[in-house]
Design a protein around this nucleic acid. Sequence first.
RNA 1: GGUCCCGUAGCUCAAUGGAUAGAGCAAUUGCCUUCUAAGCAAUGGGUUACAGGUUCGAAUCCUGUCGGGAUCACCA
Length: 614
Amino acid sequence: MDFTHTLQVGVAQAVEQLYGAALSPEQVQVQPTQPEFEGDYTAVLFPFVRLVRKSPEALGTDIGDYLLRTSRYVEKYQVVKGFLNVTLRDAYWRELLQAVLSDPNYGRQPRRQEKVMVEYSSPNTNKPLHLGHIRNCLLGWACSQIFDAVGYDVIKVQVINDRGVAICKSMVGWLKFGQGRTPQSEGIKGDHFVGDYYVLFEKKSQEEYQAWQQTEQAQAIYRARRKGDQNEAEFFKAFKNQWFNEHSQLGTEVRQMLLRWEAGDEAVLALWRQMNDWVYAGFAETYARLGVHFDKNYYESETYLLGKDIVEEGLQKGVFFKKEDGSVWIDLSDVGYDQKVVLRADGTSVYITQDMGTARMRYSDYGCQRMIYVVADEQNYHFAVLFETLRRLGEPYADGLYHLSYGLVELPTGRMKTREGTVVDADDLIAEVERLAREQAAERGSPVEGPEAEENLRRIAMGALKFFMIRVHPKRRMVFNPEESIDLQGQTGPYIQYSWVRIRGLLQRAEQDGVDLGAAAQYTGVQPQEKELLKALGEYPSVVLTAAQGYDPSHVANYCYQLAKHYHRFWHDLPILHATDPATRAFRLQLSRAVAHVLQTGMNLLGIEMPQRM
RNA sequence: GGUCCCGUAGCUCAAUGGAUAGAGCAAUUGCCUUCUAAGCAAUGGGUUACAGGUUCGAAUCCUGUCGGGAUCACCA
């Protein structure tokens, strides 16, 4: 129904029939006419001026006349340079509105019978979720919804990094300093509780390191190994990892903990399960606040040994090769990457080994032809290598792999750092935005008490936070300033929610008054503010498609903002319920209804809910 | 040093190779007796980092330079 496509086809046909030149509709560029020119839609004629060897003006006139003869929607046209501007009849706008309203699945594509897996969040179990996870979760969720909308069956998964040195640090920290405390005894959310012991461990470890640096042994090492004019502070900063591995008492305890874990020591496993369960309880709360969930969790503790059979296969296929020490490698230097190790000399796996194994496991679990990994752009290189490796191994799903790489969320001072305490905690941030929404609601006299008001405020706050994160292109690094609260006015989630709330109130009133909406069919004299809205409504399905093709939810966010903006203008400029002519009133109410529906479904793709009142 | 990403208004961000590069925030100023003012409207703010090239047309594509970031671990 969107005239963009109709015009593409019309122009292509005109060129073929008038000049006998073949042209596919996709080659015809069509856009809404710029406001300063007369017309509704514009076809760009430059590209085939040469093809038919006529002047742009003559070509435009020929095609314009053709469209007047063949299309019942085209009322008139104008040619400006190489642009053909077409004005449509009121009938088109009425029918477009009717088409949008009569399709409850407007904007959704038919099912494809194809599965896509989206992996996102991927937390570590040694600390709570932070701002970076929020961006990750919102992107992952929005992508899942958008792929569902364009017809895929989406499987949402997270990989939980539940083993290794990090969680062992929390475990040692709790054993040594926890004195049997629990999240329940302390009234602390489980993930924060476990994270606190991780931080405490790091603090104690730092103290141990400071003390050790004064020892004779440390000083001897410094004198023997310092490089050039390296001073003591610089040397010990660089030496820290080695110290932790070779000299630290706490480090020894962590390594022993890890060994006992790998050996299946029951006491260690029990502690490990306990700590992880605390963390999962905390994550569950945060995920619920964010409104995201998963169809399946993959635990690293269950997958970290996978991939060795693939290494063996790769050796046989000649994709991998073995070095003298027994380690296994892949040589990707021909595509600009390096040689990468895929299995250690001692036969243990590395990061990429696990990822190969996990990919194959998922394929056998679900048979998904496509997998989307939502992971920060620090890991671009890793995923480039992983995907290329799987391709060379001839894995059947290899061409459907995509790394949805997103930029880090940074503070004005740079990256968030645990050690410097600059990490913006997910729960804290959510609480802060909710506080802000409540404060502003109170200021303007909106209700803030009672379960309904609570729910509305929650939706407004989350709408603001989510829109703030999603409206930026994923690839872009974004700056978040905790000093400046998240806006609730202007280009924001609440701005869009507000237009929906206005419409809702309007429609309720219309229903009470028993307005006859059928009169819309007699409406004539469509106004510019109405056309603006109708054009935007017509674009919606292609916006969702574009977002899916580009793995880019920000398209949908910015579209919703534009639509809401047009609606606010329409609301301000034209009487709706107060329109005196019944046809006009009915048409504008119907138009409002269509806008509300598209806004709600569009925002729903982003995980943003509409409040009932504001 | 190699590879990849980014550079648009004071700030945060838009702009399927198309017409005079747009929004919001911040600043100034109007608009509530009329469907909810978390709104609308107006004003100022730009050599799209820089230099070349491709073409009817470049913020967008190509080359180079400068600036910022990431990565190049038998860490995950």
